[in-house]
């Protein structure tokens, strides 16, 4: 049993025995990228896959073989074949075209929600850490309480307040991420606040804004990026769940979660392609984002585990 011994013998303080590039190496953008590709080939492949997905979503109009919302009652529950590669749904709509257009919805909600939520959360986190005192205490208690609800419950409640539709969905999912990101960013910001260079900045008379934006914000970029990528997949899953419940994207807009609801379940035996392909789309997309997220986390800030 030599295996575990090799683990123990791994030198260095780093996670899982890998050499972890420090934040300092980030200065040289191109060489950092090259090192990332070399060390995390899987993560790099995921990044390329996401770019391809984004291009497909952007060019949905030319790539999709059919109109995603056009009903064709002559071709209901059509089997996958030469004319409809992934078959047709209960309204005779082309499943492949709806999946391609659904990528638009998924990426829009994914990026929109995680960027909005992470940015707001990071701002609150930095402010909370910087100002400290009662402000910090109140914000932390509020965040603690919000975290005691599962994300989906929080998102559901917010969607109920705002109503369905894509903008509200982005807002609801983004808002439910805020406390989770806030806590992580605050933790990193707290350690920076205590450094001597922040003290020095204050000593030479720098204002709050200058200290926050010149000294604190650049140092929480790493956890911020890690959280954004970690939440991308989750946002897409949440969008699918809410749409499935009929509280997210509304018909006839193409969205993967929506494609799985209703007829897809009811006629699952008669037309399994209606349920299989959109689910595959969700799974592979979220998987890709998670692989990239894991690689970015290891590269940027190995202490973070989401």
């Amino acid at each position: 049993m030599a295996e575990p011994r090799r683990v123990i013998a791994t030198p260095g303080p780093n996670v899982e025995g890998r050499r972890v590039p420090s934040l300092a190496t980030k200065r040289h953008g191109a060489s950092w990228l090259a090192r990332f590709v070399r060390r995390y080939p899987l993560g790099a492949a995921a990044a390329v896959a996401i770019m391809i997905m984004a291009v497909v979503a952007a060019l949905a109009g030319t790539l999709a073989p059919y109109d995603p919302v056009a009903n064709d009652f002559g071709a209901m529950f059509g089997r996958p074949g030469a004319t409809h590669w992934f078959g047709t749904d209960a309204y005779g709509r082309d499943v492949l075209s709806r999946i391609i257009y659904g990528a638009r919805t998924a990426l829009l909600v994914g990026f929109g929600a995680s960027l909005a939520g992470a940015t707001l959360g990071a701002m609150i986190g930095v402010a909370s850490a910087y100002f400290g005192g009662t402000t910090d205490l109140l914000i932390q208690r509020l965040a603690d309480i919000m975290i005691s609800f599962p994300i989906i419950i929080l998102a559901l409640a917010i969607v109920a307040i705002l109503g369905s539709g894509i903008q509200n969905l982005i807002l609801a999912i983004g808002l439910s991420f805020v406390p989770r990101i806030e806590l992580v960013v605050r933790a990193s910001a707290l350690s920076i606040r205590r450094t001597t260079y922040v003290e020095a900045a204050r000593a030479i008379g720098a204002g709050h804004w200058r200290i926050i934006f010149r000294h604190m914000v650049p140092n929480v970029v790493a956890p911020y990026l890690v959280m954004v990528t970690a939440f991308l997949g989750q946002a897409i899953l949440l969008e699918a769940s809410l749409s499935f419940l009929g509280l997210g994207i509304n018909e006839p807009t193409a969205a993967w979660g929506l494609m799985l609801s209703g007829a897809a379940v009811e006629f699952v035996q008669r037309a399994p392609w209606m349920a299989v392909f959109p689910g595959l789309a969700i799974t592979t997309t979220v998987l890709t984002f998670n692989v990239l997220g894991d690689a970015l986390r290891d590269a940027l800030d190995p202490r973070l585990r989401t």
């Binding site: 997949g233 899953l237 699918a240 769940s241 499935f244 979660g257 799985l260 897809a264 379940v265 699952v268 349920a275 299989v276 689910g279 969700i282 799974t283 592979t284 997309t285 979220v286 998987l287 998670n290």
Partner: peptide, 11 residues
């Protein structure tokens, strides 16, 4: 982590 439970349920 990437598979939605409800999709797995449908399958």
């Amino acid at each position: 982590l990437a598979t939605p439970s409800f999709w797995l349920a449908i399958l």
